[in-house]
Every structure is written in structure tokens, then in C-alpha cells.
Design a protein around this nucleic acid. Structure first.
Lengths: 144, 144
DNA sequence: ATAATAATGCAAATCATTTGCAAGAAGCCA
DNA sequence: TGGCTTCTTGCAAATGATTTGCATTATTAT
């Protein structure tokens, strides 16, 4: 194993594909590397542009298709923040919610067990069981 | 005033338009009435179909346009739940979050001051101030 | 009424994303 | 390694939701 700081390399994503009986193509390798490298939340176009720098032959369709498979395999997560295209994130760590910086588009991850608990309670009271949920905070940096 | 149960009639929405210097057209009147009547969360097409029953001349564009103005004036709210078209809601009462029934698409409203508070705290800790937020629970009825 | 101007219907345009299809690679086995 | 089968890809065209241009119609203040 590496230095222990590696939360998940592109190799992990490749393993996901391999296990699913899918092929590891040059373009997939490129895309996965980018996804694993940047700790941000790029949309398909951004991903495409970065990938195209490495391999100009990659097409936007392939980016979309790759995101779709990986999402189905649970290897990545797709987020659709307000008024924008879907953005992807390498699903390595545990669940977390997002705070979107309205000025920069930057995404800050956070997590609150208390909120998670409260959500469960609420759903139960309403007679439901939660399958998934999404909590997004949209805000701007407090300048003080 | 009426029987006190009227949380907000179409009249209120018309007032919003009037105050904004906008015209009260036949189609707007129809759409507003529908929006004020049903306590649900219809999407543009559903709204269009209901409206067309009252007035076949109404077009889908007008529904969209009307939703846009009303949203800008703060009279209605637009929600984009996972994997579906935008759905609209007459913004009368206070803020609330949503639980979407994955089987029926039905929307249940709820509100939790504790969660709201926690959100504020989290944003503050991260150095942000919340402009808006969205909390959606997706689940299915607990059968027991 | 009437003019001034906003709103409508329709069709065409946009945006993000998906899909059909023929051509090009991967993976596997001999 | 060569060949074969099947999965992927790139491209263009199709989709779905929503918006917009434009000529026509309808509102509203006068």
C-alpha cells in the first residue's frame, strides 16, 4: 500500500469496472485518473476538458457514459445543485452533505450526525423510511 | 374575509402581479386559480393540462412564463426534485422542507427548527452565511 | 374608445444529456 | 501472437425540459 494518505486512487475505480466485467479502456483510465486526482466536483464538461488535455480523442459522450456506469456501480456520486449541470464526485469516504459557495461554485463538504438523526426521526414520524436524501446549503463566505 | 381557512387564494397571487405592474390576463387568472386551489406540487405540464381544461387556448409557454414571473416576485416556489421536471408550489405559509414519496411522487411537507438551527451553526463554522438551502428526503411509506 | 405596451401562441432555439450506429479496441482463448 | 467476440467509442442525431423571437392579441390607463 502507499503512504496511507491515498483515500482512493484511480486504481480503485478501475477495480470497480473490472469486477463488473467492464473493460478498462484508455479513455476510461484517463477519466478515472482525473476523477480520483482532483478532490473537487467537476461537471461533465469540465471533466471532458481536463480529459481532452490528456487524450484529445475523448468525446463528451464517453465522459457521460463513464459517469453513468460508475454511478450505477456506486463508485461515484452525481449531484445536481441548483441551476446547474450535474457534477460528479468520487464516492470514497462516508456520506456527507454539501455547502455550495454561490460566488465561486466551490463545494464544501460537511456532515452532521445530529441532522442525519433528526431526518430519520422526522421520516419515521411521517410514516416513511428514508431511501436517500439531499441537504444542500447555498451561501456566501462571511466576510468579517 | 372568508372563513379563515383560506391560507391564500388566487386573489393573493393576482395582487402580487398587480403590485408588480403586471397584467391580469385570462390565462394568468386561470393558472393562478389552479395553483392556489390544489395543495399539491404540480409540474409545468400538469399545470398546463389542468389549465387547458378550463381554457383550451392556454399554451405551455404561458405556464412557464407565468411560473417564472411569480417565482421572481416570490409568490411561488420552484422545486427540482431528483430526476424530474421542476414542480411548483404556492408559497404562502412559512418555510418547509420536503419528503418525496418515491412510489407515488407525492410530496409531504415538514419543518424542523432544530435542523434549521443546526444548518446555521454548520454554515457559520465553515465561515459561510446561508442564502438558501434545500433538504429533501426521498423515501417510501413504512408498511407495518 | 384608443393608444401604448405588455402578454400570448406558435415554432424554433437552447442546454444538458442520451442514444443509434458503424468503426475501433479489449479481453480471452487457442 | 492471432483471431474472435463483444464491449466501447466518436459522431451525429434524438430527447426532454424550458426558454425565446416574433407577429398578433389583449389589457389598462387615459
Amino acid at each position: 500500500m502507499s503512504d496511507g494518505r491515498e483515500q482512493s486512487g484511480a486504481g480503485e475505480l478501475e477495480a470497480v469496472l473490472k469486477e463488473a466485467g467492464l473493460r478498462i479502456t484508455r479513455q476510461r483510465r484517463t477519466i478515472l485518473a482525473i476523477l480520483a486526482a482532483g478532490g473537487d466536483h467537476p461537471d461533465a464538461l469540465a471533466l471532458y476538458r481536463r480529459a481532452a488535455r490528456e487524450d484529445p480523442s475523448i468525446s463528451l459522450s464517453t465522459v457521460y457514459r463513464t459517469m453513468k456506469v460508475l454511478e450505477e456501480k456506486g463508485a461515484i456520486q452525481r449531484h445536481t445543485f441548483e441551476g446547474g449541470p450535474a457534477r460528479f464526485e468520487h464516492a470514497d469516504g462516508q456520506h456527507h452533505d454539501h455547502l455550495i459557495d454561490l460566488d465561486t461554485g466551490e463545494v464544501v463538504e460537511f456532515r452532521s450526525d445530529r441532522i442525519e438523526k433528526l431526518q430519520e426521526e422526522i421520516a419515521r414520524e411521517l410514516g416513511y423510511e428514508i431511501v436517500s436524501h439531499r441537504l444542500e446549503l447555498y451561501g456566501r463566505r462571511r466576510r468579517d
